[in-house]
Simulated assay, not measured.
Amino acid sequence: MKNISWIGIYPALLTPFTENDEIDYPLFQINLDAQIEAGVDGIIIGGSLGEASTITAEEKREFLKYCVKTLEGKKTPVIINVAEQSTKVAIAMALEAEELGADGIMLLPPLKYKADDDEVVTYFKAVAAATKLPILIYNNPVDYGIRVTLAMFEELLPYANVQAVKESTRDLANITNMLNKFGDRFKILGGVDTISLESLMLGSHGLVAGLVDAFPRETVAMYKLVKAKRYDEAVAIYRWFMPLLELDIHPKLVQYIKLAATAEGIGSEHVRAPRLPLKGAERERVLKIINDAIANRVALPDYKNL
Rank of each mutant, 00 (worst) to 15 (best):
E62C: 09
G267D: 00
P301Y: 04
D292T: 08
L150T: 09
F153N: 09
R272F: 10
P277A: 07
L247C: 10
L244I: 11
G183N: 00
G104F: 04
V120M: 01
V165E: 05
A57H: 09
F124Y: 13
T54W: 04
T70K: 09
G39F: 03
P16V: 05
I146C: 00
A130E: 04
V89A: 06
P134L: 04
D193V: 11
N305Q: 05
L207R: 04
I105R: 07
G47F: 07
K125W: 03
L197D: 03
D41Q: 14
Y144W: 09
E155F: 02
M93L: 07
L202W: 10
V235A: 15
V78S: 11
Q35D: 07
M106D: 00
K279H: 07
L150N: 12
E58C: 08
Q163G: 00
I79E: 15
G190E: 14
I289N: 15
I43H: 13
L225N: 08
E62D: 13
A209P: 02
L150A: 07
Q85D: 14
K2Q: 08
V40G: 10
L108N: 12
A34L: 06
E59G: 06
Y113W: 11
I289W: 05
V271T: 06
C67P: 02
G42C: 03
V271C: 04
L108W: 01
I289S: 11
A97Y: 00
I135Q: 02
L95P: 00
G73T: 05
L306F: 08
I36G: 06
A293W: 12
L49W: 06
N31M: 13
P16F: 11
P243N: 03
I290M: 02
V121P: 01
I266G: 01
P109E: 01
A228R: 12
L156W: 13
N140A: 09
E269G: 13
D117V: 00
L136D: 03
N139P: 07
S196P: 05
G104T: 01
T76K: 15
L179W: 07
L172D: 06
N291H: 14
L111Q: 05
L157Q: 10
I294E: 01
L287W: 05
V226N: 06
P277D: 05
V286Q: 11
L306D: 02
N31A: 14
S5R: 12
L156G: 06
L136F: 08
C67H: 15
T131L: 01
G190A: 14
F28L: 15
E59R: 08
T262A: 15
E58R: 09
G50W: 03
V235M: 15
P277V: 10
D116K: 06
G183D: 03
K75Y: 08
F17A: 05
E284D: 14
P134F: 12
K166Q: 14
I7D: 03
E264N: 13
P16D: 05
K181Q: 11
Y113R: 11
L306G: 02
I289H: 04
T169G: 11
K166E: 12
Y256V: 02
G42K: 00
A92R: 04
I137M: 01
P251F: 10
E198G: 10
A130H: 08
I23R: 00
M222I: 11
S53N: 01
V220G: 02
E58K: 11
G191Q: 10
P26V: 04
A12L: 06
V235W: 15
G101V: 09
A273G: 09
H250R: 14
F17G: 10
S86Y: 08
